[in-house]
Design a protein around this nucleic acid. Sequence first.
DNA 1: AGGAAAACCGACCAAGTGGTCGGTTTAGGC
DNA 2: GCCTAAACCGACCACTTGGTCGGTTTTCCT
Lengths: 198, 198
Amino acid sequence: MATMHRMQTTGLELFYSNGYYNTSVDDILKKLSLSKGAFYYHFESKEDFFIQIIQNLLARKIYSVLIEPIEGHDDPLKQILDCFDDALETAVHNEMDFGCVLNNFLTEFRGKDEKIMKHLCDIFSIWEVNLVSTLQKGKFNGFVDRHVDCEAAATFLISSYFGVRTLMVGVAPSARKYRFMSQLRMYLKSLEPKTVAV
Amino acid sequence: MATMHRMQTTGLELFYSNGYYNTSVDDILKKLSLSKGAFYYHFESKEDFFIQIIQNLLARKIYSVLIEPIEGHDDPLKQILDCFDDALETAVHNEMDFGCVLNNFLTEFRGKDEKIMKHLCDIFSIWEVNLVSTLQKGKFNGFVDRHVDCEAAATFLISSYFGVRTLMVGVAPSARKYRFMSQLRMYLKSLEPKTVAV
DNA sequence: AGGAAAACCGACCAAGTGGTCGGTTTAGGC
DNA sequence: GCCTAAACCGACCACTTGGTCGGTTTTCCT
């Protein structure tokens, strides 16, 4: 059981940094000093292996970093700002950053492996739905202007997050983060309820 | 010379839809009914081949779609909005859309091939610099509020564009485009000069 | 027509790929 | 101690990869 978990952890590490197709099963086994036999005893194929990683590790990661910090609080706009800020700050301090895991895998598997794509889209969908409903609740509670199109806002927020994570890899991540956050703050402000004109 | 050009064109096609590492030289040659000999007569390696594609095709494409339509006009905010709208509309109608070419390659080569990364970053940089200077000119001409941080705005715009292109692939591209554009319009509005209070 | 250079062919190579399988080690219940 | 089954080993397989090279065809200039 411990072996299985170790395989998944280093599997995700390598898949994340080298890509799925560019990481061989042997690469993972070499890093763990294990043999082919051990791998195919626990998993029936490389694809199956990756799907289990998605469900066991990726899904939890996305939830704990991008969903859980936002849902269930009163002011969604402030929560979103803080959540993005934390996530980007973590990325800045991670010298082995390769962008948003979900974004990278979505890009890599597009049109190649439908089965894997389905699982990735499921995770993405959970994030999106949560964001939309959090915004709608914020509207109900008076933290978001009632004219705001919550689905549109969620799409825009996710887009910008995916994009900035890609931009931040490598060149001046800290500066890019700072610039991004300043504009995000402006955008979020435009979602706040308009004070009634005198 | 015609052969060389055909190779680059279909090379870009396949690299774009399948990824660089997941596309073999043989794949490209099979589609063109050419042989290994022809390939290695014109190019010294797969890497060299791709670099030439970047310089000959990718650079021009990015310029004609994302740079040229924006620069040189008066109101940069309107130009950006129209430019993004056109680019996204093209993507919506392209049933073989796999996201923004530049974004995908930047993601794929990160940490793998420094030489190629350099060339990709160069193209990216040109786009970024152009966007910043266009915004600054807009500021000078009174189309952009003088308090706007142009570099931050450019980062934010590029981020959101990269991200939405990824989101639009596959699931409901048209709806996603519409939602994105509505929020982009809002954001760009917040960059307009504030009318002086009465 | 002739000849040389440019363009192209395709068999071949070493290195890797995902996956198989017969066999060995290890752990736990009796 | 014994036996079974889970866990693991590593040689092996068919196949693909990027790249080479000796040779053939095309093209074009004189």
